[in-house]
Design a protein around this nucleic acid. Structure first.
Length: 612
RNA sequence: GGGGCUGUAGCUCAGCGGUUUAGAGUGCCAGCCUGUCAAGCUGGAAGUCGCGGGUUCAAAUCCCGUCAGCCCCGCCA
């Protein structure tokens, strides 16, 4: 190990003249100084090769005792991830030793001066091969994990996407405005992160779940067009595409219709895709109503890169002798399914596994027909007339060799199970085209949804969402049928943005509160400051909030947003590297006028019992 | 809160019909080696089998509990 005195002080003479990845044949003959990390060392005794790495890439450095004996001697002691400075001459590699896999592979740098700027422990894991390292270890040493070229690329794509968004929106007349992080509960409906106030004992800030209230206030403030790469904080459980803190490209515009929002959002996405990964996103995007999305795909975020669309055959089978179908039809459920091409030869065991699969997603079971040249066959075929079987086959447009898979259940359950089944079958049958981008708008979401537990209507999006102009009369008569002027941008089955035209008039807002059974007093208490603002000339406005992490995840081809967040949290919302959250200092708690009341675990109880 | 998968050397994993000294690859250390680029050759060090309890003469292996990571449900734009 080196003592401090053996390490080189970083001085003027060691400052880099080039980055590692930029050197090319054009630089041959140049004397260069490079700074970076030892990626790999190949010590041949006589010759020593080092792959030197910085953010720009790799370059091979050659240590030859005939060039400089001391540099060669020191190079023998180099280890992975040592930080070094080298000076040398760029030379063409001897014929036959070029490395076509490296952009710098035509040349190497023959080193005459080597300085060790810092030594390094052997890294706990390596990113030099394809091996997937346990996520625990990666997160604990995130700063090392981020040295992985893949992660470096992800950070770069994220940066390019962010810059593209900023540049585009600024050019379109959007003003970037920062909004408070210490705020109060906002109307999204997730659990808030709370911050106790020291100077106001017993009062708490809530961290914003989104800057939603603020952006509407900015419209009232005459901002006209606002955007922000905004942190949104929600204390809910995590998923592969959900972190407790995520980033939205938050946007709002005054004096616009839905189509104006669509137009600018489509161009924003196109710009991001172009700048970050060089892909031209098709525009304009197709539009699909919420109802149609559920009918055809079983979900409000359909992946339309492939077919396998769902078919509702309830009317076809309602009268059949097969009681399971008939009963479901009678009780208001649906008989619905899809046609898996070329799957007629699936074995019993595989069908059983698919049955378990849909049962895992709440369906009662999976009915199926093999399509053979004799027609539809299978264990339940005998319950159907020839005409019914023919109609079924027709409904699914099934060909010989296909397998029709059917779920009969309540609408919501059948849709959810079939959405899972559709995506699963598409993956198994390799029906999802790679490098294909299929954006669409899902529109006309219901304004409200019935909350069975509390026997009341809840806002589907949030309570400030403008109802569809054709549905205003339904508001009191049939709230569940009212469509909202809200919309989602969906790309490849991921919901990437969500927005709406907002209510800007008091009379409409009051009718909505009435439907939602929010009293004037409650509204005043929860959003009084906000509602008051609408008394002073609120312009018509609307907006959207693209989820930046999910966008970058797709751009990077990753399956998980942790891969595109520099310092993400685990599923239990902890930071394995920094050890957050952590206990608070008692004095700090006392400053905040807080006393802890921790949950008692069984172990604690046993411990207490023994000590008594 | 619930379901599933995983936890063995620094890392990736094998072993898990109970048995002597727990293995492999890679990494690491040392030596040799002048054109390698996943360098090569020789040798070496390296393990609280996640943790706790139980069954047993004997547990990485069987049982119970618990913790952690991941995926999903609930929850959540």
């Amino acid at each position: 190990m080196y003592t401090m005195s053996e390490l080189s002080e970083f001085g003027h003479e060691l400052e880099r003249t080039h980055t590692c990845g930029e050197l090319r044949a054009d630089d041959i003959g140049a004397t260069v100084t490079l700074n970076g990390w030892v990626n790999r060392r190949r010590d041949h005794g006589g010759l020593i090769f080092i792959d030197l790495r910085d953010r720009s890439g790799l370059v091979q450095v050659v240590f030859d005792p005939q060039i400089d004996e001391e540099a060669h001697r020191i190079a023998h002691d180099l280890r992975s991830e040592y930080v070094i400075a080298i000076q040398g001459v760029v030379e063409r590699r001897p014929e036959g030793t070029e490395n076509p896999d490296l952009p710098t592979g035509e040349i190497d740098v023959r080193c005459d001066t080597l300085a060790i700027l810092n030594v390094a422990e052997t890294p706990p894991f390596t990113w030099l091969d394809e091996t997937e390292v346990d996520e625990k270890v990666r997160l604990q040493y995130r700063y090392l994990d981020l040295r992985n070229p893949r992660m470096q690329r992800n950070l770069r794509i994220r940066h390019d996407a962010a810059q593209a968004a900023r540049r585009f929106l600024s050019d379109e007349g959007f003003l970037e405005v920062e909004t408070p992080i210490l705020f109060r509960p906002t109307p999204e409906g997730a659990r808030d992160y709370l911050v106790p106030s020291r100077v106001s004992p017993g009062n708490f800030y809530a961290l914003p779940q989104s800057p939603h209230i603020m952006k509407q206030l900015l419209m009232i403030a005459g901002c006209d067009r606002y955007f922000q790469l905004a942190r949104c904080l929600r204390d809910e459980d995590l998923r592969a595409d959900r972190q407790p803190e995520h980033t939205q490209i938050d946007m709002e515009m005054s004096f616009v219709t839905r189509d104006d929002v669509f137009e600018v959002t489509e161009r924003l996405f196109a710009e991001i895709w172009r700048e970050a990964i060089g892909v031209e996103l098709p525009t304009p995007w197709p539009r699909m109503t919420y109802a149609e999305a559920l009918a055809r795909f079983g979900t409000d975020k359909p992946d339309i890169r492939f077919g396998l669309e769902l078919v509702d055959v309830t009317p076809v089978v309602a009268g059949a002798d097969f009681k399971v179908f008939a009963n479901v039809a009678k009780s208001g459920g649906v008989v619905k399914g899809l046609c898996a091409p070329g799957c007629a030869d699936l074995g019993r065991a595989q069908i059983d596994r698919l049955t378990e699969f849909v049962q895992d997603h709440k369906a009662k079971g999976l009915a199926y027909f093999q399509v053979t040249d004799a027609g539809l066959e299978g264990p339940i075929a005998k319950f159907f007339s020839d005409e019914e079987l023919a109609n079924l086959r027709e409904a699914f447009d099934a060909r010989i060799g296909d397998m029709i898979m059917i779920v009969a259940d309540e609408v919501e359950i059948a849709n959810e199970a079939l959405d899972w089944l559709r995506r699963e079958m598409a993956a198994r049958l390799d029906l999802i085209p790679e490098d294909t981008w299929a954006p669409l708008w899902v529109i006309d979401f219901p304004l409200v949804a019935w909350n069975e537990d509390e026997k009341r209507w809840d806002a589907e999006h949030h309570p400030f969402c403008m109802p569809h102009p054709d549905d205003h009369e339904l508001l009191e008569r049939d709230p569940g049928a009212v469509r909202a002027q809200s919309y989602d941008a969906v790309v490849n089955g991921f919901e990437l943005a969500s927005g709406s035209i907002r209510i800007h008039r008091r009379d409409i807002q009051e009718r909505i509160f009435q439907v939602l059974d929010i009293s004037r007093e409650e509204a005043q208490r929860r959003f009084g400051f906000f509602l008051n603002a609408f008394e002073y000339g609120a312009p018509p406005h609307g907006g959207i909030a693209p989820g930046f992490d999910r966008i970058v995840m797709l751009l990077c081809g990753e399956q998980n947003i942790r891969e595109v967040i520099a310092f993400p949290k685990t599923q239990r919302a902890t930071d394995l590297m920094a050890g957050a959250p952590s206990p608070a200092d008692p004095r700090h708690l006392s400053d905040l006028h807080l006393r802890l009341e921790l949950p008692v675990t069984e172990q604690d109880e046993e411990g207490t019992g023994e000590s008594l």
